[in-house]
Amino acid sequence: MSSGTLAKPIMRGMLAKRLRIHLPIALGLSIFVGAMVKFTVTEPRKRSYAEFYKNYDAMKEFEAMREAGVFQSVGPKGK
């Protein structure tokens, strides 16, 4: 077995070289994931909220909760 010396690793400029490769990849992935979240989570949620509030009657909901006795300070109608 020969006991040869190992070559010194090239350390100068290593960070800059790695950043040139990894920074665009990270930027591209973050834009892609952001767009996927927007179109798969945010937009459907906005549509469902808009659909819900299109026919929502807050006073009708309040009256139903009051009749059910949900509120402590507001009794059923007529009492």
Rank of each mutant, 00 (worst) to 15 (best):
L15G: 07
L29V: 11
L6D: 03
H22L: 13
V37G: 07
A26W: 03
L29H: 03
I10F: 03
G34Y: 01
F32L: 15
K8C: 01
V37F: 11
A16W: 08
L23M: 11
A26S: 10
L6K: 09
R12N: 12
V33E: 15
G28H: 06
R18T: 01
R20G: 10
A16V: 10
A35W: 15
P9K: 02
L23C: 06
P9D: 02
V37Y: 06
H22C: 09
M14N: 11
M36N: 05
P24Q: 15
M36P: 08
L19R: 09
S30T: 12
I25E: 11
R18P: 00
I31A: 14
A35E: 12
I21T: 13
G28D: 07
R20T: 10
H22E: 14
S30L: 12
P9S: 02
A7V: 01
L15N: 15
M11R: 13
L15K: 15
A35R: 12
A35K: 11
R20I: 06
V33H: 09
V33P: 09
R12M: 07
P9I: 01
A7I: 01
L27V: 14
R12F: 06
L19C: 06
I10M: 02
G34D: 03
L29Q: 09
G13Q: 05
I31C: 08
